[in-house]
């Protein structure tokens, strides 16, 4: 294999891993605070749609690139945050079963984006690749890591930031505490429901960024159901990564690499039907979850609403 193929495969892996990583970070925020979130898929899809539509309208109105992209990303992130707020209101405030609440978001996302979808919408283009001076000239690593779009860079920063937030700050300690033993946290003066609200909404905003990545940075277009299970895979890889940002990022890279391999195999014209090759990332996820996770331990109180005494 030549250097160019390796670079291209690694870069594909990183790009495929990006929305998954963001989805997993959304899951981490939510589940560490004790709220199961299977609505990541729907949160991503809605944000992908609204971000794209903002791009379409601002393009039509002739906005310059910078305000256009800023507005589009902001709308996507806001959409994610709002869907997170919906999940929080349903599952924390009204104590609706968290699985049901997540499913509501997924169904809502499919229905709404399908209904409002406009065929043939045109934009003035997607987010540009930014080559970081000097760093991008490093052989192999440079083109893989430092010639990417802004959301991918943000994702790398977020992985580190969320890790620090979760394990080295007061906020993180309290978040983990309410996911494990909300009663203990409550008696020590921590407002469990408020923390859950903020965490689930923050998670939603990050899922919004994942949606923005899909339509504004990766594809540049919106299609019905375009998230194709990425939200669920993110959730699975979050478990594989044992509810930690670095773990989830590592798992997402593994998934990304399977995607890259699948592309490469098709490119090489391997004679296996492409449907089978297309399965590789999903099968890998299945095997990883079924076989290698071992005793992953979720936050002890995840999935159960907390009743204040």
């Amino acid at each position: 294999m030549d250097t160019q193929t390796i670079v291209s495969m690694l870069n594909t892996a990183l790009r495929a891993a990006t929305p998954i990583t963001l989805g997993a970070l959304c899951g981490i925020f939510s589940e560490r605070s004790g709220v199961v979130n299977i609505g990541i898929e729907g949160m991503m899809l809605m944000s992908a749609f609204t971000g794209f539509m903002t791009n379409v309208y601002t393009s039509g109105a002739g906005w310059a690139d910078f305000p256009r992209f800023t507005a589009s990303i902001l709308v996507a992130v806001l959409t994610g945050a709002l869907s997170g707020a919906l999940h929080a209101v349903l599952s924390v405030r009204f104590k609706v079963d968290q699985i049901i609440s997540g499913t509501v978001i997924n169904i809502l996302a499919l229905g709404m984006t399908g209904y409002f979808y406009v065929q043939g919408a045109i934009t003035a283009g997607r987010l540009p690749q930014i080559a970081i001076p000097l760093l991008s000239d490093i052989p192999i690593l440079g083109p893989v890591l430092f010639r990417n779009g802004p959301i991918l860079y943000t994702t790398l920063i977020l992985v580190v930031a969320v890790h620090i937030l979760l394990f080295h700050t007061v906020w993180g300690l309290r978040t983990r505490a309410i996911g494990e033993h909300p009663r203990a946290a409550d008696t020590l003066g921590i407002n469990v429901h408020r923390m859950q609200f903020i965490n689930v909404i923050t998670g939603g905003a990050i899922a919004g960024l994942a949606g923005a990545f899909l339509t504004l940075e990766a594809v540049g277009n919106f299609e019905r159901g375009m998230t194709t299970g990425r939200g669920f895979i993110a959730l699975a890889l979050m478990i594989f990564g044992k509810w930690t940002p670095f773990g989830a990022f590592g798992a997402a890279l593994l998934y990304g690499f399977a995607v890259a391999l699948q592309n490469q195999l098709q490119f090489w014209g391997v004679t296996i039907p492409h449907q089978f090759i297309g399965m590789i990332p999903y099968i890998l996820t299945l095997i990883v979850l079924a076989g290698f996770v071992g005793r992953a331990r979720p936050p002890a109180h995840v999935g159960r609403p907390y009743e204040v005494e």
């Binding site: 007061v170 300690l173 309290r174 983990r176 203990a184 946290a185 020590l188 003066g189 331990r297």
Partner: peptide, 24 residues
């Protein structure tokens, strides 16, 4: 009212944490 997966120090300070500023 203890959190099993956390250390003794983390359990003790939870809610009245010792910080080095900026919430760290």
């Amino acid at each position: 009212q203890l959190i099993p997966v956390m250390t003794v120090a983390e359990n003790v300070m939870l809610g009245s944490e010792v910080t080095r500023g900026y919430g760290l």
